[in-house]
Nucleic acid binder design. Structure first.
Lengths: 155, 155
DNA sequence: TTTAATTTGACTAATATTGACTTTTATTAT
DNA sequence: ATAATAAAAGTCAATATTAGTCAAATTAAA
């Protein structure tokens, strides 16, 4: 019923492989042919759905025998992870990126599902919609950073 | 059997589907065509009849393969307490009042201690400090309301 | 009559798709 | 070894495909 665009379908395909193994290696043109799309669409899928915020690292090689490899990474020490994420966030951040960050923090086990949902509510577009589009992103970054910093210590 | 305006008819149509399943996913333009109205009327119907107070959560995506999904959620018993709190908050709120509200929601057992602390981090004065003092309060009110609305239902 | 609800459409924003062109790497021919 | 060619993947901008917003116009209700 849902996700009828090719990008979502390709995403699901790749993630179904990643459910069983730590990484997946593809040949761009083969996947493009398999799903009847242009090769650059594979890049689009990777750039929008397999970012580091999402917990994936991508490596590729051109030329004969070229490939794209997507590796699922577990982030190591919580405190380092938090530093990295705060750096990624910077001074402003859009909702999609913020969502991905919360998602990966959740997957790290640093937030419960309920906590994640509450945070997502607090930073979503409707909540932070303003005349000034930039303020929205700035506020979102501040909230997120504040919460991540709060996760550095218990109670 | 009165008031057969298009909005009511569309509402009934969607609710008849929701009588059988937990959610309905539509393509805005298709429904608009089906009922011979402009696409934005679908937004009107959703905004006026499928709100969280009524027990619906709406998610959508634009672009190719876009959709609008309406999900029926179980409202928890605290839903009218939440109504009251949202009224108290209004359009803006200072930190102290917000803190009290979170505290009482915590004492009601609707938030864990950790959740409360995360929320407080996200709305504290430093997080929301702005040139304009009023914006701070407005943002705080929005965040708080958004979180309270999220507490109306589980998962 | 006054107010609230509905309808409409022009404009905006987000997301996806496509393809021409570029860059990198490997292989083959000289 | 070196140069030419082939075989990948990358980039980027144009276009297409949705949904969202907002306010004016219209209609219904009080």
């Amino acid at each position: 019923m849902q996700s009828q665009n090719i990008s979502d379908i390709i995403e699901k395909y790749l993630k179904s492989i990643l459910a069983d193994s730590q990484q997946v290696e593809i040949k761009r043109s083969e996947i493009a042919e398999l799903f009847n799309c242009v090769p650059s669409q594979i890049n689009y899928v990777i750039n929008t759905r397999f970012t580091i915020q999402n917990g994936y690292v991508v490596k590729s090689k051109r030329g004969g025998g070229g490939y794209i490899r997507i590796v699922k990474v577990n982030l190591l020490d919580d405190s380092d992870v938090i530093d990295d994420l705060i750096n990624i966030i910077g001074d402003e951040i859009d909702f999609n990126k913020a969502f991905q960050i919360i998602q990966s923090v959740y997957q790290e086990g640093m937030l419960t599902r309920r906590e994640s949902n509450l945070i997502i509510s607090s930073i979503d577009k409707r909540t932070l919609a303003f005349e000034n589009r930039q303020i929205e992103k700035i506020v979102r970054a501040r909230i997120l950073i504040s919460i991540l910093n709060r996760l550095r210590y218990d109670d």
